[in-house]
Write a protein that binds this DNA or RNA. Structure first.
Lengths: 121, 121
DNA sequence: ATGCTGTTTTGAAGTCTGTCAACCTAGAGG
DNA sequence: CCTCTAGGTTGACAGACTTCAAAACAGCAT
């Protein structure tokens, strides 16, 4: 029963996207996935993503002091991560908490899985 | 003995970089890795990377016709992938062949591995 | 040598990105 | 109501990115 109805909230990572080393990616799929990689393509955002992914959730007030950047700049980078679908945010009282979106994260990981095509290349 | 002297051609993917969901990434590491993600953050380059990674090696002459872009533009994108350390190129006679760099590819995959920290978040 | 084909480099135009200052909004607490 | 703090939004600017045309380079074949 539990296998019959998969919890497909978004597209299933693997079913939708075999690793890029297995089959050439078509233009449509690339247009969807590239923005996710792009979001991770900035050192600040990569660190933000890592800080968020390393804990169940984290407050912006704990993210900002880790950088020599203004609040608006951090806010901007968080927005990019949010719009790429990599993280979610939720206001609880005074503070805003960020959380990784595991499905998106898994999808990216699946795309970079090494091909089992051979043992050499 | 075999464990004592690791074949460290480049930095060992896993030893150097635990998944970003395990431990926050420091600024130095982010500065090294972000350009790789950035290189994959363009739809054209993502497709190029996928085409290259799907086969042992591939000629530029087989890459260019897959896009509605000029030769120089494709060449530029290939250069970005090359300088990010994701692919290698080799001229053989008239044509230039591109090949994925498995170590870099593995490193990126390892970074996106899902944390085994828990089953919930 | 001369030409032909495949690939890269150079130069330039237009667009996008990262950053901050200034301002605005949401909630807590008088 | 007002004030204070935490975050986000807007506007602006310097620098980077994508793209192409033109030129340069590399190798094969007359």
């Amino acid at each position: 029963m539990s296998k019959q109805a998969l919890p497909v909230v978004g597209p299933d990572p693997v079913a939708c996207c075999p690793p890029i080393a297995v089959r050439p990616m078509d233009a449509d799929q690339a247009a969807v996935v590239a923005p996710m990689f792009k979001a991770l393509g900035d050192p600040v955002r990569l660190r933000l993503m890592s800080m968020i992914a390393s804990v169940p959730e984290i407050c912006v007030c704990d993210l900002t002091p880790a950088f020599d950047l203004s609040g608006p700049t951090i806010s901007h980078h968080l927005k990019v991560l949010r719009e790429a679908g990599l993280v979610d945010s939720e206001r609880r009282g005074t503070w805003v908490w960020y959380r990784v979106r595991p499905d998106a994260f898994r999808q990216l990981g699946a795309l970079l899985e090494i091909s089992t095509r051979d043992g050499g290349a």
